[in-house]
């Protein structure tokens, strides 16, 4: 992909409302997570106000049953969510990209075997497998990232394979081959850059799903006990539903915005990749 093409893509991307909103939300999420220590008005674990205090000027999102500041908890929770999403995203790329490219490029028996292998992982129920892993190995962000990463790559592998299959027959690949380009070079310089956009569409969606799974586990009290997370906060709120609505509402809103960020980003990218719809 030439520089001019990148510029054209970027300009088109800038005109898509979902792309703009998605980028804005993602940048905000990353900024909040990065600057969480500075942004959080209080230590989220310290008792700083009245128990179950409704939102007011001093505590914008209210306080929990022990008088801890919810806003600070939500700001620090962004870090946990993003860490899981980023870790899983990296693993998904590391597994899905090579498998998809090799399957699509080689074809034949290799393709068949790799796709059967992919289907195997696709039927694994992620949520329940994560619960088994937590039960056997204890809770923790590291194993959560591994189990969600190892089970989330099939969609990426499939789209990469489909893209590679169609790209393989295109003239510019033939041209590169005719010019004597080696196979690794061909894959790195010709194939990979053209596979990236469609991969990003799926990757963003997968990362959004992962945020929701992590939150569900946190809600059930199965998250990392050392990291504050939105799911954990919402789970704690369940007991106080009748008396403190804010404890339930705000963690969910934060999560919706974060998942929406990834989904909109995916949507915006998809408009560039495939203008059919």
């Amino acid at each position: 992909m030439r520089l001019a093409a990148v510029g054209r893509l970027a300009r088109r991307f800038g005109r898509s409302p979902s792309a703009i909103l998605g980028t804005l939300l993602t940048v905000t999420l990353v900024a909040v997570a990065a600057l969480a220590d500075v942004l959080a008005p209080h230590d989220p674990l310290a008792i700083v106000g009245p128990p179950l205090g409704a939102p007011d000027a001093a505590f914008l999102m209210g306080t929990d049953d022990l008088g801890r500041d919810l806003l600070s908890g939500i700001i620090l929770g962004a870090r946990t969510s993003l860490a899981v999403a980023a870790g899983v995203g990296a693993l998904v790329l590391a597994i899905g990209l090579p498998i998809g490219i090799v399957a699509g490029y080689r074809g034949g028996v290799v393709d068949d075997l790799l796709m059967r292998f992919t289907e195997l992982f696709q039927v694994l129920p992620r949520f329940f497998l994560a619960i088994v892993v937590i039960a056997l190995f204890g809770p923790g962000l590291d194993r959560l990232i591994v189990v969600l990463g190892v089970t989330s790559w099939p969609e990426v592998a499939r789209i990469v394979r489909a893209q590679t299959l169609s790209l393989r027959e295109r003239e510019f690949i033939d041209a590169a081959r005719a010019l004597g380009s080696s196979q690794p070079r061909l894959i790195r310089h010709e194939l990979l850059p053209n596979v990236i956009p469609a991969t990003a569409v799926i990757l963003a969606l997968v990362m959004g799903q992962v945020l929701l799974i992590e939150a569900s586990l946190g809600f059930l009290g199965l998250g990392d006990p050392n990291a504050i997370s939105w799911g954990y906060l919402a789970g704690q709120a369940q007991r106080f539903l009748r008396v403190a609505w804010w404890l339930s509402v705000f963690p969910g809103v934060a999560l919706i915005l974060a998942v929406l960020a990834f989904n909109l980003l995916s949507d915006g990218l998809n408009d560039q990749v495939d203008r059919r719809w």
């Binding site: 929701l212 569900s216 799911g231 509402v249 969910g252």
Partner: peptide, 22 residues
């Protein structure tokens, strides 16, 4: 649909209880 798709099920459930039942 895009927003609902992004909403965690525990949040929808808690809101539903707040609104309809309580």
């Amino acid at each position: 649909t895009l927003t609902i798709d992004a909403a965690p099920i525990f949040w929808v459930g808690q809101l539903a209880i707040l609104a309809f039942a309580l």
